[in-house]
């Protein structure tokens, strides 16, 4: 990593200020924990027994990840990647970016790195949200004990890592589309169609071919009753392969562009 990459990343980071992408990450990260919190406060009578359970944290984790893995994470990755990358098209700034003293590789990877950092931020906020969704009912409702069970940090970290790896192919493909097409609807529309296709192909034995299915499969592999056909291969490894492959194609397409504006 050279110094111009760091400067380029700093510059990219400043562009996200007040951007819709940043708001999506903040709202998306806290959305499910907020729903869980409200639901628990409404059903406050059941809370003492829930909070006393030995598997309190794992159940909370599973509840929180349900909507996240199936909907919010894939859609968040689609929207965040597209919005960040499309900042240049929307503002007609590609030509300015390409007249800066930066080589194309630096521009390509600093933008991609920014998307990954923001996705990481999405996970951090979501984890904080989960923790707060456990604490808030304990703070506001009398008689609710602090959870007895210790927080399974290692399990949470492993799960976070798996989900993060699973969403990488989505990021890579959305990045490719957003770099290639000027119109915002192309990457977002394609991403949405692929997400619907992924949902529909969960019960297909080759559903794992579609790289948008991996977050869903990881959640469903957690013992949730479902009709999905679980892949027998390592989907996390496949996600990494997809990510590297799509990123390479995207890089080649970007480097060989005839016009840079």
């Amino acid at each position: 990593m050279n110094i111009s990459f760091i400067h380029s990343f700093q510059s990219e980071w400043l562009k996200t200020k007040r951007s819709l992408a940043l708001w999506i990450v903040i709202i998306g990260g806290f959305f499910t924990p907020a729903i869980v919190t409200v639901a628990r406060i409404i059903q406050y009578r059941t809370l003492p027994s829930i909070y006393a359970a030995d598997d309190f944290w794992k159940l909370l984790w599973q509840n929180s990840w349900e909507s996240m893995a199936l909907f919010l994470l894939p859609l968040g990755a689609i929207l965040t990647t597209s919005l960040i990358t499309q900042i240049e098209y929307r503002n007609n700034t590609w030509k300015q970016l390409h007249t800066l003293p930066l080589n194309l590789t630096t521009i390509f990877f600093s933008k991609l790195f920014l998307v990954l950092v923001i996705m990481l931020g999405f996970f951090v906020l979501f984890n904080i949200g989960i923790y707060l969704s456990a604490l808030i009912p304990y703070w506001v409702i009398g008689g609710v004990p602090y959870p007895k069970a210790p927080i399974p940090f290692q399990y949470f970290l492993e799960q976070d890592l798996k989900y993060f790896v699973d969403c990488l192919p989505i990021v890579a493909f959305q990045y490719l589309l957003s770099l290639k097409y000027r119109h915002f609807l192309v990457p977002v529309g394609t991403g949405f169609i692929l997400w619907v296709g992924a949902l529909a192909s969960l019960s297909w034995k080759y559903g794992y071919i579609i790289p948008y299915t991996y977050c869903m499969f990881t959640y469903l592999q957690g013992g949730v009753v479902n009709k999905a056909v679980m892949p027998t291969i390592n989907i996390h490894l496949l996600a990494c392969v997809y990510f590297v492959g799509i990123t390479l194609v995207s890089y080649l397409l970007y480097m060989t562009k005839k016009e840079r504006f």
Binding site: K15, K17, R18, I87, R90, N91, N92, T93, K95, Q96
Partner: peptide
């Protein structure tokens, strides 16, 4: 050609 500016900044 036309100005290249980040409109949200």
């Amino acid at each position: 050609e036309s100005p290249s500016l980040y409109g949200h900044l």
